[in-house]
């Protein structure tokens, strides 16, 4: 039976109370500590989805490595894509501390049963998309991950701290691409605006469903897995991003976007959640292509894994014979 449908064992109420007292005292939970089965499952779900997102997130940008407009841009893009692979590995390693096997998690990604961030199912049609992904998508990820760096599960929090340091490079390289295009020819500005138009709403969806439709939120907040709600993080991202858009001189594709002097927030229009649900359900523009690319990469990388295993076997034989 899949992990998520197996009935939960009943936790001992005394242990649950002691666990919740530790959480309330701001303590960090470590792999060998007792934790409610449901805490373990929620974290396994969140962390593996997060790790998968990093891995699938290599694909939209990998698409432009061979067509980067200069060697400088190409070097940054390769480094960024390599970082995403590293981020995936940090989080998979953290997930393994919960007693799951990375191979099983990865198979769930390859067979389409695991979820990953909906944003990576959108195509990267123009060079400007590399700038806008760095600026908006990595920007949204930073807002989310900065808070996750204070999550109650120690290995996840430590992976986030490591990742946040590197994401700042991603965001800055993205914004620099946007700024260059914004100061460029009319065609470049038009390309930038088009990329922003396509990525703005999907970036807002990255924070997940609205709090009123997020069944997991209350429990995740109680256990301090999450420290802020989806809507709070989304609002924070918008507040940070609007001045950056103004600096670029581009328009964010939301006629309802306006500053609210009372709340000091940027009010925004209604998100099309039906689009979000469709993409999550596997019907986004690139879902099929992304999974096919991951499967091909896994199959084509098999000889490397086989070679490494054969090399190690040969060396251990040689050591034994010596």
């Amino acid at each position: 039976m899949p992990e998520t449908t197996r009935p939960l064992p009943t936790d001992d109420p005394t242990q649950v109370a002691a666990f919740e007292a530790r959480i309330a005292a701001g303590e960090s939970i470590e792999p060998k500590d007792w934790m409610p089965e449901r805490y373990r499952r929620q974290l396994t779900r969140m962390m593996s989805q997060h790790a998968h997102s990093e891995i699938v997130g290599m694909l939209p940008e990998g698409n432009w490595i061979t067509r980067a407009p200069s060697l400088r841009r190409k070097l940054s893009l390769i480094a960024k894509v390599q970082d995403e692979a590293g981020h995936g590995l940090y989080i998979y390693c953290g997930t393994e501390t919960l007693g799951v096997d990375r191979f099983d998690l990865y198979n769930q990604l390859l067979d389409g049963t695991a979820k990953y961030s909906s944003i990576f199912n959108y195509p990267t049609l123009a060079w400007a998309d590399m700038g806008v992904i760095g600026w908006l998508v990595d920007g949204a990820a930073i807002v989310n991950q900065t808070i996750l760096a204070k999550t109650s599960y120690g290995p996840y929090a430590r992976a986030m701290v490591r990742i946040c340091k590197e994401e700042n490079f991603h965001k800055r390289q993205g914004y620099e691409i946007c700024m260059t295009l914004a100061k460029g020819t009319p065609a470049q500005r038009e390309m930038l605006q088009d990329a922003v138009n396509r990525f703005w709403w999907p970036s807002l969806m990255m924070f997940g469903p609205s709090d009123t439709h997020s069944p997991n939120t209350a429990e995740l907040l109680k256990w301090r897995v999450k420290r802020k709600t989806n809507d709070e993080l989304r609002q924070r991202f918008i507040n940070l991003t609007v001045p950056q858009a103004q600096e670029l001189g581009i328009t964010l594709p939301d006629p309802d976007l306006r500053y609210n002097a009372e709340t000091k927030n940027w009010d925004f229009g209604t998100i099309d959640w039906s689009e979000f649900q469709e993409v999550i359900a596997g019907n986004g523009p690139c879902n099929r292509e992304r999974l096919e690319a991951r499967r091909a990469a896994h199959d084509e990388g098999r000889w490397v894994r086989d070679a490494a295993a054969a090399h190690a076997a040969k060396r251990s034989q040689a050591t034994a014979a010596a």
Binding site: G94, A159, E166, A309, H311, A312, S316
Partner: peptide
């Protein structure tokens, strides 16, 4: 402690650890 890696032997583990935990 930085994290963990899977590797076939010690030398391979060192190389993987460098790539994952010491890129900068």
């Amino acid at each position: 402690h930085a994290g963990s890696v899977h590797a076939t032997d010690a030398e391979h583990a060192l190389q993987n650890a460098r790539d994952v935990y010491a890129r900068r």
